[in-house]
Design a protein around this nucleic acid. Sequence first.
DNA 1: GTCAAGATTAGT
DNA 2: CTAATCTTGACG
Length: 218
Amino acid sequence: MPAIPLPRTLYERRAPELAPDLLGCLLVREHEGRLAVGRIVEVEAYLGEEDAASHAHRGPTPRSRIMFGPAGYAYVYFIYGTYYCLNVVTGREGQGEAILIRALEPVTGIEAMYEWRRRGHRRADEAHSHSPSPHRLANGPGKLCQSLAIDKALNGHDLTRGERLWIEAGAGASVDRIGASPRVGVRGDELARSIPWRFFLAGDPCVSPTPLNRFHLG
DNA sequence: GTCAAGATTAGT
DNA sequence: CTAATCTTGACG
């Protein structure tokens, strides 16, 4: 089956509008001759300079410059000295928008995901780590990147080419299953902390664990 | 150069 | 609740 990645025009929509439509789509990773696929069950939208919670809030910097480029590219950043997080750049060039992919339901290549995740552990973690059940393999942005072997080498990667890493249309998500809540772990002004730009499949076991899961929207 | 904070996670 | 762990970006 040929890869049919989402086209760049689709990524050119505004992040808060596009974000809920990514729920149910498939994130595909091709690495070391193996294929791993996960269904997107949780995302967060970030805007540019007007969004106090966004890495683009203070304009283009060496880290955030990818966000200000054209849509359809991966923005991968390193956080807390340990984890990577994956975003897709959206909107028009110069706006600085992106969508953070926060959680997946593993679909294909689960064994590869276990292996890649274990490899991503630090030594200290490895001694105590045991294989989690599949629904906890990618139920958070840091774990998702471990399980798909995503690191800074993929920062700036073109997601529309259908190689190494891309997104494909999936079955979609029925509107009545889409939950919305404030974004997890963000600082900034009251608007940034309260605006409901986290979208998730309500009740899905692969959504990241947080009290915000009780929020719901039509 | 220095320093505080961070779109996280696992363990106590 | 807190430690782990190190990049980033602001400031001087």
